[in-house]
Design a protein around this nucleic acid. Structure first.
Lengths: 250, 250
DNA sequence: GACTTGTCTTCCACTGAACGAAAGGGTCGC
DNA sequence: GCGACCCTTTCGTTCAGTGGAAGACAAGTC
C-alpha cells in the first residue's frame, strides 16, 4: 500500500505535493499539524502553503477545524482522460450487469502492483465489500486483480508472486498455485476468487480488451456464493466487456 | 463559467496551481507550450514544474506528446469527503431511480452560481445530455439547478436572476417568470424544465434534505418528454431523495 | 486561579531555490 | 535547404521561500 515520497526533493512544488499526499483514504481530514508532520515540513511552511491552496480555488478546504480535499481538486481529477473516459464508456454496461446479477459490479485497472478501482456499482442488498472508487487493493486476492495480473508484463507478475500477503485464511499465498490460476485465466477467459479478499464474498471477473486486443481493464462482480450459475455470470460479464471494448475506439 | 485566477500571486505554489488550472473539460490534453501560455508562465519554468509533477507520482502524465491529468490527481480528488461521501450514499438510490424510469439520473450540488454534477447515471438508450460528472451548468436552465436555486440564499438568487443567459429558445430569461417557478418549487417540492437546456430533453428534479431539513443536493432525471407520468416520476424521485437524506447522518 | 498541551498564526533576517534569457536539438512540412 | 513548430538544458542574478522564535487562543487537568 501507499509508500512513495522517498526522494527528499527540496523544491516548493514537491512540498505542495507532499502536503496533498498526506491525505489518503484513511486520512481524509487532517489538522495543519498533522499535514506538516506527515509531509515532513515545518509548521510555518505548511501553514503558508496550505493557506495558498485554500485561497486559490478550494483545492483544500477547512471543515470543522480540519483540512479536507476540496472541490477544485475533485473536478480536476475528473479531467483525467484515461480514468474518466473508460468510466464513462463502461458505465451503461455496468448497469446492464447490475441489472442482470444484482451483484456489486467493479471496473478496475492495474496501477503498478495494485488494482485501482475506477468504478463501483452496488445496490442496497449487495455483499459488503472493501473496495471504494479510487482505492487500491492487492492484485492477487481479487477477481479483477487476477485478470489484470494474468495479462500483466512478466516482471509485474514475478514481483507480485514474490510477495503474496495473506488477507483471509483463503487467500492464495503459494506462487505456484496462483501461477496455475493465471494460466487458467488465459485459457478460460475469466478469473474467480472464493473468500480470498473478505470472508463471505466470492467474485468473478473478465478482461476488457481494446480493439487491438490489448487488455486495458477488468470487469468483475462480487457475490455471496459462487453457486451453479457461474456460467451465467461469466456470460453476462463477457457480453458487457465486449461491449465496452467495442465502444473504446482505440 | 470558469474564471478566477485573477490575482497574480508570485509564489511557486500558485504557479503549480495555475498549471493544473490550465486543464478544463474542453482541454484535457495540452502541450507544454499550451500549458505555459494558459498559465502565464515562461516555457522553461513550466517545463521544470511540469517535470516535477510528472516525476512525482503521476500527477500529470504524458500521453502521445501531450500532457494530461494523471492517476494520482484523480484519486486525490476522490478523497474529497463531501463530494465522494454524498455520491457513495446516493449511489444505490440512483440505481433505483434508473431502474424505475430508465432515464438519465443526476446527482448535483450547487457550487457558487453553477450546478456541479456529482454523479450521472445513464443507459444505452437515454436522451443525450450535456452534463458530465464534474462539469458545471447554469442554475437557471436545468431541473436540478432550479431546485438548488430555490433553496439557495437570497443573494445567490438575485445574482443568478440578474443574468439569465439564453441557451435554447425555451430557456427562461425573464427573472419574474423564474422567480414564480422557484416559489412553485417550494410549494410543490419539485422542479421541471422543458427543453430549456437542450432541445428534446425535459427534466424533473427534487431536493435532497439532510436530517436537519437543510437542502444539500438535488436529484433529477432527464427524459425525452414530460408526458402524463410526471406524477410517477416525481414520486420515484422523492422516495429516493428521502432515502438518501435518511442515510446522510448529519 | 495557574499550568500543560494542544492547536494555529505572525514576524523577520538569511540563503539557496526558482527565475528567464539565450542557446541547443528534434521533428515536422514545404 | 529553410522556417515553424515543438521540447530541453545551461547559467548567473535575485527575490521568494525558509524555519526559529514568539504570540494568541482553546481545552483540559490539578
Amino acid at each position: 500500500m501507499a509508500g512513495n515520497s522517498a526522494e527528499s526533493g527540496i523544491t516548493v512544488a514537491s512540498r505542495v505535493l507532499a502536503l496533498l499526499g498526506s491525505f489518503d483514504p484513511e486520512h481524509r481530514a487532517l489538522t495543519l499539524s498533522e499535514m506538516a508532520r506527515r509531509a515532513g515540513l515545518s509548521l510555518p511552511t505548511a501553514h503558508r502553503l496550505v493557506s495558498e491552496l485554500v485561497d486559490w480555488g478550494a483545492v483544500v478546504r477547512r471543515s470543522s477545524g480540519k483540512y479536507v480535499i476540496g472541490r477544485r481538486l475533485w473536478d480536476l481529477g475528473l479531467l483525467s482522460p484515461t480514468q474518466s473516459g473508460l468510466r464513462q464508456v463502461a458505465s451503461p454496461f455496468l448497469h446492464d450487469i447490475y441489472g442482470a446479477t444484482l451483484a456489486t459490479v467493479h471496473l478496475a485497472v492495474r496501477d503498478e502492483l495494485d488494482v485501482l478501482y475506477l468504478d463501483r456499482l452496488s445496490g442496497h442488498a449487495s455483499v459488503p465489500v472493501v473496495s471504494q472508487i479510487g482505492s487500491r487493493l492487492p492484485l492477487h486476492a481479487t477477481g479483477v486483480g487476477k485478470v489484470l495480473l494474468a495479462y500483466a508484463p512478466e516482471d509485474v507478475q514475478t514481483a507480485v508472486l514474490s510477495d503474496l500477503t495473506r488477507i483471509t485464511p483463503y487467500t492464495i499465498t503459494q506462487p505456484g498455485l496462483l501461477r496455475d490460476q493465471l494460466r487458467r485465466v488465459h485459457r478460460e477467459g475469466y478469473a474467480t476468487t472464493v473468500e480470498e479478499m473478505s470472508l463471505g464474498a466470492c467474485s468473478v471477473a473478465v478482461p476488457i480488451r481494446a480493439s487491438n486486443g490489448q487488455v486495458v481493464a477488468a470487469l468483475g462482480i462480487v457475490v455471496p456464493t459462487l453457486k451453479r450459475d457461474r456460467a451465467r455470470l461469466v456470460a453476462a460479464l463477457q457480453v458487457a466487456a465486449q461491449g465496452v471494448g467495442r465502444s473504446l475506439g482505440v
